[in-house]
Design a protein around this nucleic acid. Structure first.
Length: 576
DNA sequence: GCCGTTTTCGGCCCGACTGTTTTCAGTCG
């Protein structure tokens, strides 16, 4: 999403937190949170909207408009600045401690003068918290645990690791208990790029035996909470896992509730309220007499509310409910729509498997084409030579006979140099069927330089796909700074695709950039960048990222037929 | 602070679990 929108989202979010700490009306706090999220998810740039356009953003009223205008004009919001002065700097961090909300934060501040994490830890260790009315020894202990887990940096894990952990836990429960249904839900089902905790949902008539098995799994380090239908544990690796057991009859309603997002649920429940209904994890009911309307499947519950089924990857309250109501919710792309992979490697360069194995795996997936794109000579660590390139081309030709249903294409992943040029001369490049070009160095240039560099690569008539366009590595390397709107415009102008790289630590473009690109009209390419056969399974993460950005089959280059793909390449080459 | 096929004022999602409470507030998702 546009940078200004992200900045305003951040500031209003901070404002909401500061108001929580000062004890403001919770509904006012929520209004700030809602406005922040709406603006952050809005695809039109605030700088390009007039007052009427800004007021058209959901949850943005006259007051918010004034603040946004002030920010656009002056770069600050003076009321927020004032609030910052009033609240000690460390207070916001206190809210990050599990079990500590605004009420307790105010309490420890007023009673003990605690203004930051260090002071809170000292007060708890000196047993001073238990002296406060409303807090006891147990609260003190649980807050100490909360501080420890927070400072131990038990941070979010990548989606593939979360998926693996969830599948292992589900397998364990399958072996040890009986039930009707089981699945993971929460942010993992929505396929966010990182996952804070895992949610497991089970449908069964009896909750107790399942929760018992769950709490006594070998990998459990701590049982944080255990009630009648819900158990929370922390694994030895520090991962929090919630288990919720519901009746089989309520499976659909529970799945909606447990999948979230929280903001999506609130929006859907508000629709229920307006219709005189009540939605909870137990079902959709008439508010008056409590009689049940729907609960068994997600589809039934959504339908009874006048909504189509909304894919979990789109449930972020980023406009999907409004679109669903208006009948304009797009049908997102699915893995089965893909006809091939446009970005893959072999052990000729930095891949791990011989080309034969890669082709076998791709063929077994039912792909009708597959592009081998090993690195080029400028990425010197791979030691690639022109001779090796031509050798590989010959080899692929020979291998084609073994794959009658899948066309093997010879491509290359070019390196985008600091100035936007790529490997080889045009004559040599023209020998490839399709070319990917990616940034592998100079990640810290200015936004202007990066934008010019990417546009130069995009304008190269032989470059068809920009690989992992932002260059980020989740948790390790920040994305390059660039004017994404300008990059999109160049991609559209030249007939160049932007990649959605499926590697779990890349997911690049990321979801909100996908959404932006799709709205602009950019053609995308969802690829695995596989360096080994097993990496081809990562396509699920790339597809999920594309879905989270509302990309449809029509937006994605590698859903097209071989002929259409070849035309895409030929059109750009002919243009200049 | 936002919002309106019951409203321009009076609402604002819903339930589980914990802890310190003898009936409920705070936190979480």
């Amino acid at each position: 999403m546009p940078k200004t929108n992200e900045e305003v989202e951040e500031l209003l979010g901070e404002w909401a937190e500061l108001q929580q700490i000062t004890g403001r009306d919770p509904y006012r706090v929520r209004a700030y949170e809602k406005a922040a999220r709406s603006i952050g998810g809005y695809s039109k740039d605030l700088r390009e909207l007039d007052d009427k356009g800004i007021l058209a953003i959901p949850n943005v009223g006259k007051n918010m408009l004034g603040r946004i205008r002030e920010y656009l004009d002056t770069g600050t919001m003076h009321e927020l600045e004032d609030l910052r002065e009033m609240v000690p700097g460390g207070m916001r961090e206190l809210l990050r401690i599990p079990g500590l909300g605004p009420k307790k934060a105010i309490l420890v501040y007023e009673q003990l003068g605690v203004t930051n994490l260090t002071e809170l830890a000292a007060a708890a260790e000196a047993n001073k918290l238990r002296g406060i009315k409303g807090l006891g020894a147990k609260t003190e202990e649980s807050l100490l645990r909360g501080i420890r887990s927070y400072t131990a940096q038990e941070e979010r894990i990548m989606v593939d690791q979360a998926l693996e952990a969830a599948e292992r836990i589900i397998a364990t429960l399958r072996e040890t208990c009986t039930f009707d249904e089981i699945t993971y839900a929460g942010s993992l089902r929505r396929m966010r790029e990182t996952i804070g905790d895992i949610d497991i949902l089970v449908a069964a008539s009896e909750a107790e035996p399942i929760m018992e098995s769950f709490a006594s799994m070998a990998r459990v380090r701590e049982v944080k909470a255990k009630g009648g239908t819900k158990t929370t544990i922390v694994t030895r690796r520090g991962l929090q896992v919630d288990l919720r057991v519901v009746p089989y009859e309520a499976w659909g309603a529970a799945l909606i509730y447990f999948t979230g997002s929280k903001a999506h649920n609130i929006k859907v429940r508000e629709i229920a309220v307006k219709k005189g209904l009540k939605l909870s994890e137990y079902g959709l009911f008439h508010a008056k007499d409590g009689s049940i309307i729907a609960a068994r499947t997600e589809e039934e519950v959504y339908e009874a509310l006048g909504l189509p089924w909304i894919p979990p990857t789109m449930r972020e309250d980023r406009g999907e409910v409004e679109a669903a109501l208006a009948g304009t919710l797009p049908t997102p792309i699915e893995a089965r729509d893909l006809r091939g992979d446009l970005h893959t490697h072999t052990n000729l360069t930095d891949g791990l498997a011989p080309v034969e194995e890669m082709l076998e795996t791709a063929s077994a997936r039912g792909y009708s084409y597959y592009v081998v794109t090993d690195h080029a000579e400028n990425l010197s660590m791979t030691g690639m030579t022109r001779e090796a390139v031509l050798e590989q081309r010959k080899k692929l030709k020979a291998l084609q006979k073994r794959f009658p249903k899948m066309t093997i294409l010879h491509g290359c992943e070019l390196n985008i140099a600091k100035d936007g040029t790529v490997d080889y001369d045009p004559e040599f490049l023209a020998g490839f069927d399709l070319l990917v070009a990616s940034v592998h160095s100079y990640f810290r240039l200015s936004a202007e330089e990066q934008t010019q560099r990417l546009i130069a690569a995009i304008e190269n008539p032989l470059v068809n796909v920009i690989g992992h366009p932002s260059g980020r590595m989740i948790g390790r390397r920040a994305p390059i700074d660039m004017d994404f709107g300008a990059v999109c415009a160049a991609a559209i102008r030249t007939g160049t695709a932007l990649e959605v790289n499926s590697f779990p630590d890349r997911l690049d473009l990321r979801d909100d950039h996908v959404r932006w690109a799709v709205e602009a009209g950019v053609t995308l390419s969802v690829d695995t960048d596989s360096h080994a056969p097993k990496h081809m399974d990562n396509i699920r993460f790339g597809i999920a990222t594309a879905q989270r950005g509302w990309a449809t089959k029509a937006d994605v280059l590698n859903t097209r037929t071989l002929k259409q793909l070849q035309e895409f390449v030929a059109r750009k080459r002919k243009r200049t």
